[in-house]
Amino acid sequence: MQTNQTKLLDGLISIYLKSLILIEFGVFGGGSWATALVKILTDNKLLVNWYIKRSLQAQAIEKTGYNPDYLNLVSLDTRYIRTLSNIQQTAQRSKALLFAVPSAQLPTLLDHFESDWITDKIVISTIKGTVGPYYDIPTDVIATYFSVDHQQQAILAGPCHAEEVGLGKKTYLTIASPNAEIQELLSACFNTNYMHVQSCHDIRGVSYAAIYKNVVGIVCGMAKGLRYGDNFIAVLVANALHEMSNMLQSIGSVQPILNSSYAGDLLVTAYSEHSRNRTFGELIGRGYSVEKAKRSMQMVAEGYGATQGLYQTVQQLPADFPILQAAYRVLFKHMPASTEFKLLEQKLK
């Protein structure tokens, strides 16, 4: 009985919090993950100002309730969507700004912002890649551009392939923010019957884990393209978990990695057919050049740029990162994947 009462109380609290949420979300990005996030928010009857650059895409969304370019089988509730082609209008009409663009596009997008558009806003990043010539994490870039404190920011992470979220398949989402009030507010906004939301304060650790797991996805794809079997890939993933743990400890993260936003996100990226990074790596393993593999992809494989960014970052760290190093040499030093994997075999445990 106590369990049922607790569940009822939790449900009432969630409904109460949502009733207090009068904020509008500004979503920047028109891809698959942005579409899945819009679905979550509108399923919760929250208003979304959706910045869409292409007028034909915006018109199709408004008219049909479907994004014609990404996740085009996912129905969106247009009663809660306002598509906009003006960045300033999108930002100023919204209380929470959600960035869901590829990491390489973030600086260009931010160049169109004014600092006063960000003042008193909740700033949310879902970007899983390093940014700019210094290979910063997205929250640091946003903080630098607008002199906003990390207390104003949050990131979303977890094993959340957009294709499954769009279909309402159960998963777990982590909201990382040093601000407990933002954690609570966003938890109410994103919690649904198919999305279990949990929170933590480890914004840097979750950021780096989300970036690193895309590198692992590429390496696992390479292994598949080179015709390694499931047994070897399991060894590869086990070593990748150890490597990620070393990386997070080196940057000061104290959270255990055996939860959904760390190990869970890495595992789904390593194994899922929905993983674009794994697909990209498989093409490399099959003999495609990097440029040909990139041209063959309909969406951006964030792990490509992340590999270079993380490789530069870990140069100052005491631990060894053989998986990351192998990925870097294949992607940026043009070493044959088969050669690098023969060397990697000797370093795995």
Rank of each mutant, 00 (worst) to 15 (best):
M1L: 04
T6R: 09
T6L: 14
S14P: 01
Y16V: 03
K18A: 04
G26K: 00
G29L: 02
G31D: 07
G31R: 04
A34S: 13
T35C: 09
L37E: 02
V48G: 12
W50Q: 01
W50V: 00
Y51M: 03
R54Y: 05
Q57P: 00
A58W: 01
A60T: 03
A60C: 02
I61P: 07
K63W: 01
K63L: 08
T64P: 05
T64K: 01
P68E: 11
D69T: 08
L71F: 09
L71S: 01
L73K: 01
L73S: 04
D77C: 06
L84N: 07
N86I: 13
I87M: 06
Q88M: 09
R93K: 13
A96V: 01
L97M: 02
F99W: 04
A104F: 14
Q105C: 02
D111C: 13
H112A: 15
H112R: 15
I118R: 15
D120I: 09
D120E: 15
I122H: 00
I124T: 09
T130G: 12
G132S: 12
P133W: 05
Y135H: 15
D136P: 05
P138I: 06
V141A: 10
V141W: 11
A143M: 11
T144H: 12
Y145T: 06
V148T: 14
H150N: 14
Q152E: 11
L156C: 07
C160T: 15
H161R: 09
A162M: 12
V165P: 07
G168M: 07
K169T: 12
K169C: 04
K170H: 09
T171H: 08
T171Y: 12
T174G: 11
I175T: 04
S177Y: 01
L186R: 03
S187T: 10
S187M: 09
A188T: 08
Q198A: 02
S199H: 00
H201N: 11
D202A: 04
G205I: 01
Y208W: 13
V219L: 07
C220K: 02
M222V: 13
K224M: 09
D230A: 03
N231H: 04
F232V: 04
I233V: 11
V235S: 02
V235Y: 08
V237P: 00
A238T: 00
L241D: 10
L241N: 10
E243Q: 01
M244V: 06
N246P: 00
Q249T: 13
I251C: 08
G252F: 06
I257P: 01
S260H: 08
A263L: 09
Y271W: 07
E273T: 13
R276A: 12
R276M: 08
N277W: 13
N277F: 14
N277A: 10
T279Y: 10
F280D: 00
L283Y: 12
I284P: 04
G285H: 11
R286K: 15
S289Q: 15
V290S: 12
E291P: 03
R295M: 14
Q298S: 14
Y304S: 06
G305Y: 08
A306T: 14
L310M: 12
Q312E: 15
Q312H: 14
T313D: 10
L317F: 15
A319G: 10
A319R: 05
L324V: 13
M335C: 03
S338P: 00
L344I: 01
E345T: 02
